[in-house]
Design a protein around this nucleic acid. Sequence first.
DNA 1: GTCTATATTCGGATAGAC
DNA 2: GTCTATCCGAATATAGAC
Lengths: 197, 197
Amino acid sequence: MKGSAAIRRLEDPRQQVLDAVLVLFRRQGYFATSIQDISRESGVSVGSIYHHFGDKEGIARTLYQTLTEQMSARISWISARQGSVHDQCREIVRALFEMTESAPLVMDFMLYAKHREFLPEEKPICSSRPFELMRTVVAAGIQTGEIRKIDVMVASTSLFGGPIRMIMARLDGVLQAPLSGYLDEVWDCAWRSVAAG
Amino acid sequence: MKGSAAIRRLEDPRQQVLDAVLVLFRRQGYFATSIQDISRESGVSVGSIYHHFGDKEGIARTLYQTLTEQMSARISWISARQGSVHDQCREIVRALFEMTESAPLVMDFMLYAKHREFLPEEKPICSSRPFELMRTVVAAGIQTGEIRKIDVMVASTSLFGGPIRMIMARLDGVLQAPLSGYLDEVWDCAWRSVAAG
DNA sequence: GTCTATATTCGGATAGAC
DNA sequence: GTCTATCCGAATATAGAC
């Protein structure tokens, strides 16, 4: 039955560990978080953690890959459901804002964690799938003529740079109110920067 | 004479250490850099380093404060020399781009370093002096009517968010060519997002 | 102020029982 | 698969001579 899957998932030690490190990495950072901390917070023993993840880096890598995949999937899904590139991009920004409020730890890890410091093999965040997808959408917008004929990288950073800085400000506590209240104004600014006509 | 000052500065152990950690923190990050590494790279002994900085965190703090002060001073200077807010902001972006090319290590430390992980006392980078100054300029622009009447934070992130993302892409190696070639297009986009009229 | 040698702590990783 | 007890290398910080 379905219910047992949910319970199993709660008991799944891998998921327990991933949930715990998301909290701990945010609170103390990767390096200040010991395996002992992770064991205590997750309720999974040290030996079990090593059995499942190999080493400490393996935990971070698994978390990183899981989250980037989820985010990519969500962006693709949104993108496919919208008609115009304008609507696609606006809904992506809306989704990013919504994720920031509902899962700030995830957004924090995605945007702020210096993956290069503890995942030297991984590509920089700018080159990760979610950001590549955003650039793809922008490139399509230039093709359709919705977006002015400018460099794709310039268009992407102009369109999403403002919203991303707002998210960072919110995660830092510089911004007190929820992002949803700023969405219309932020999107209006962002779109003006690249809109054709 | 002036020459001896320059030589003295090269011999100043504090400066030697700060120069070295800028390189090391960029290459390996704060936590992966040991005091031994710093001693080797700077040519200053471990004991001397502790004498001057107290502890490892003291090195990072000194570096952070020195760089934010320099950056703030430069932004203030630029801002004071320009007539319109439009020109002030454009020259700030130009200066940021120029700094990225001439001193990438400095920009990397300012934008990318997770200061919260090793400087828990410091304010988040969004709240640091340089960013506050930028918001002040933007607020002035709203007063003069050059910038539309929108939320100051929204206006700031919209205006500088794109350029900052371009800088990050450049530091990550995602962008191959120097930023100077993108300045006009980036600034055009940025200004459109907030310009009145 | 500068340096070398050293102490002490800490945390990643493993061994091996269950 | 899970757990506890343990090892061992590494890194911060200090002591104390010069």
